[in-house]
Write a protein that binds this DNA or RNA. Structure first.
Lengths: 340, 340
DNA sequence: TCCTATTTGAGGCACGTGCATCAAATCAAG
DNA sequence: CTTGATTTGATGCACGTGCCTCAAATAGGA
């Protein structure tokens, strides 16, 4: 009933605890034959190292860094909040989390920052930054140096590492499905608003959106993406333009993670009847907008879950153990004013 | 930087480690004045007991029991599967989980089963059983005896204990919102199918459903709940009856956690155009039904999350520590064929 | 065969806490 | 002040693992 210990392992393998230790911690100077014996015993007994005891012995403490864009977006603030929560939740596991801000548009400085992290003080990093060769390289280099590193929310596509985030193509498709199903009109056009179409995330959402719309709602037409660049005046101008000129408008898809500006602009315009509005990410603002009907639906990734998942993954890499994929899958959440 | 230990505490409080130990573990024979001194030091240093070390010292192992109804429902099977997963996920924390089957309709036997659990072998129980005074009593008795106990999925309303599950009223409201918004007709009737309306869960879902429908979609009428009692023939009869007689049918709400029978029956009937179908719980069956359009939407509670949440809560009670509410809130998930 | 390099074993301390024992100090009451 | 009870301190082992040192055993090469 009791889990086997290194002592049991030693006995079963017919070696000393010192040798078991050498094998378990990959130290030099053990004959292959002995290594095999120990591994066989591990398998036979189903031995798993008691990480708690190990960490105790090593007085190990984890320090994870979340490298996030510098920005005033509510969504990012939510994430920071959740990082604080996670720190509490994982306090028992001796986990500390720090937030560091990076300049998302300067891959070079991001890479430099990552390069500055040493395995002595930093057990792992979760990086939220647009895809770029420099960053990808820096991540590889980190991993080599023994610092766990995973892309966070923004993916570095071609990497086969673990990553934490949602399938943005599916998220876009979900937005399309909801707009199509919510709309009472048979046909019409849909306005798509993004902050910028530079990022992979936006592109993928748009791809998924168009695919689903074409497949399931061929009578609805998505207009070209409008880019606000986070500028309120510009947003007002381009949105007003579409709203007043397009008589067929039946839906609005706000693709960026910050729905505030577009929604605010829209609410100043004469309310167009029966136009369905879909946005992204749960924030105090989008919750309020759902409540009073400025948004009909919000598609969200569970920020708290993502943060915890990142911590678990970094911890697992750090421990050289494995995570449990089931738990780590980030779902695409659909929020209405009934299920907040 | 290092977290303070009991040694530091002792020094700060000006007492010995033995006394600190007496206070921390609530042993007898310590003067109130000394207790206060130690508590003051705890607060001052921000001491938190290192549970890992404590568990190591005690060779503590957790054994949690999930008391689930005996049944062939897919949803329950999913839960069992997730319990197995959770066991792996928490293996590092020395957690073991067992599933015990209870007769959900016999509160007396459930109470007897709960009474048979001893704190020696069982650290905690998660109980999925309909509300009843006997069960509620048994839970109280368990807690007194030092066995953590929480209602699981089915709630024991009036208890102010922790519990794990969703707000069924909100779930029903969400179903209504989706049916209303998905439907292309201005008015019509909605069929509501349940396995039985005996349980609180069903009642609450119905309440929430009716409230939201009345509020947001006054032109849609919900028909009286049809009860299948899990009997396929009966289901076929009553469903066929409504479908063939009600020309206004625009939606179907399958309220029970087992959507299989109603959906299967419905798919044998001549497909009624534009009828929106909403079911509950994610299972292999409902996933397939979403894919091929037999269901338009599924409202689910994240089974894996619930199981893990239950484990964390039981563990926290067992450790006399606190959980982090944020993480434990079980969301009402909306599943379409785009976000599976 | 002997010598040396490699591989293994034995043992011990550390991590932070729980728990037990026994002695020492302090207290309250007579 | 004495007596006995209550409260505190000192000390040591245990939990499972990491890590260190030193000695012993074994291997391979000449």
């Amino acid at each position: 009933m009791m889990r086997p210990t290194t002592k049991d392992l030693a006995k079963a393998a017919g070696v000393s605890r010192a040798t078991v230790d050498r094998v378990l911690n990959g130290r030099e100077g053990v004959k292959q034959k002995t290594v095999d014996k120990v591994n066989a015993a591990i398998k036979e007994l189903g031995f798993v190292r008691n990480i708690q005891a190990a960490n105790l012995a090593k007085s190990k403490r984890y320090r994870f860094v979340f490298a996030l864009p510098r920005s005033g977006e509510e969504f990012l603030e939510e994430i920071v909040r959740h990082i604080r929560d996670a720190e509490e939740a994982f306090a028992l596991d001796q986990v500390r989390c720090d937030v560091e801000h990076i300049d998302e548009n300067d891959p070079h400085s991001i890479a430099a920052f990552l390069a500055s992290l040493s395995p002595d003080e930093t057990s792992g990093v979760a990086i939220m930054a647009p895809e770029s060769p420099q960053v990808r390289d820096a991540i590889f280099r980190l991993q080599e140096r023994g610092v766990a590193a995973i892309p966070f929310i923004s993916d570095q596509t071609t990497m086969d590492t673990d990553w934490v985030g949602i399938d943005n193509r599916a998220a876009g498709a979900t937005a399309a499905a909801l707009l199509g199903r919510f709309s009472k009109s048979d046909s019409g056009s849909i306005m798509v608003i993004a902050e910028s179409m530079q990022s992979r995330d936006s592109l993928e959402r748009r791809l998924g959106f168009d695919a689903e719309l074409g497949k399931s709602f061929p009578n609805l037409t998505a207009l070209p993406s409008l880019e606000t660049y986070g500028d309120e005046e510009r947003a007002e101008e381009i949105i007003t333009n579409v709203v007043s000129n397009d008589q067929d408008l039946v839906g609005i898809y706000i693709m960026s993670s910050e729905a505030k500006i577009p929604v605010t602009v829209l609410s100043t315009l004469p309310r167009i009847k029966d136009v369905v509005t879909v946005g992204h990410e749960r924030t105090p603002f989008t919750e309020a907008a759902l409540h009073d009907g400025r948004l009909d639906c919000v598609i969200a990734q569970n920020a708290g879950h993502m943060v915890r998942s990142a911590v678990r993954k970094l911890k697992a890499i750090s421990d050289k153990s494995t995570t449990h994929s089931q738990q780590e899958h980030i779902r695409i959440e659909i929020l209405l004013n009934t299920n907040l």
